[in-house]
């Protein structure tokens, strides 16, 4: 995984597989404290405490095609390599909350990557999901909710390719503004 946005997409796929109908994703960049946080919370089926204990072990997986699962172990490794950590809270029947922290300026921190493509891919795969996204950069904030877009669209499905491409461009523009006009999310504004 070369981008944190891809980790978020991977976590979102887990949430959807867990039957989540509400999914919120956040990114917080705090230069003063040199900290980057990415997280996700869902109302999926959740995990038993015993399973949470071993879920970052690559030999733990629910899939049936093979005996290894690498999504969470890779994210945990990336976070710890960057003086950060991975926190998982989960309750069966309630949902799961996952948050990874990184030292923002750590040498090994993966770039945030293409958040609009990640969000659009989630929407394309789960158009009924109540996806919300919030992103803050040193206190400036952007938020997005799929529910509001669906309301505006009325009878037009969110899965319409024109709608999804429109949303991707819209999100790209909004995030560019959030960074003060810089195109790459990891560059300093200016």
């Amino acid at each position: 995984m070369e981008e944190l946005a891809l980790h978020l997409l991977d976590l979102a796929q887990n949430s959807l597989a867990a039957g989540a109908s509400d999914l919120s994703i956040w990114v917080r960049e705090d230069k003063k404290n040199d900290c980057l946080t990415i997280g996700l919370a869902d109302n999926g089926c959740g995990m038993e405490p015993e399973f949470v204990q071993r879920v970052t072990d690559p030999f733990t997986t629910t899939r049936t095609t093979r005996r290894v699962g690498l999504g969470l172990p890779l994210l945990a490794m990336n976070a710890r390599l960057c003086d950060g950590d991975l926190k998982i809270e989960s309750e069966p029947g309630k949902g799961t909350r996952i948050e990874a922290t990184f030292r923002l300026n750590h040498w090994d921190r993966p770039p945030l990557g293409n958040i609009p493509a990640t969000l659009v891919t989630i929407l394309a795969g789960a158009p009924e999901c109540n996806l919300s996204y919030s992103h803050s950069v040193d206190g400036r904030e952007f938020s997005f909710s799929a529910g509001e877009v669906r309301k505006e669209l009325g009878e037009i499905p969110l899965t319409n390719p024109k709608v999804l491409i429109f949303l991707q461009d819209y999100l790209q523009e909004a995030l560019t503004n959030l960074y003060g006009g810089a195109i790459d999310g990891d560059k300093k504004p200016g």
């Binding site: 995984m1 891809l6 997409l9 991977d10 796929q13 899939r63 699962g69 690498l70 999504g71 890779l74 293409n114 493509a117 990640t118 659009v120 891919t121 394309a124 795969g125 390719p161 024109k162 999804l164 491409i165 991707q168």
Partner: peptide, 28 residues
């Protein structure tokens, strides 16, 4: 769109598909 697909570039393939469908105005 499993972990393996995502790591191999499935997201970019997905957005390329959406762009092409939007461009050609196809209902798929």
């Amino acid at each position: 769109m499993g972990t393996c697909g995502i790591a191999a570039g499935a997201r970019e393939v997905m957005t390329a598909i959406l762009s092409e469908l939007a461009k050609r105005n196809l209902r798929v």
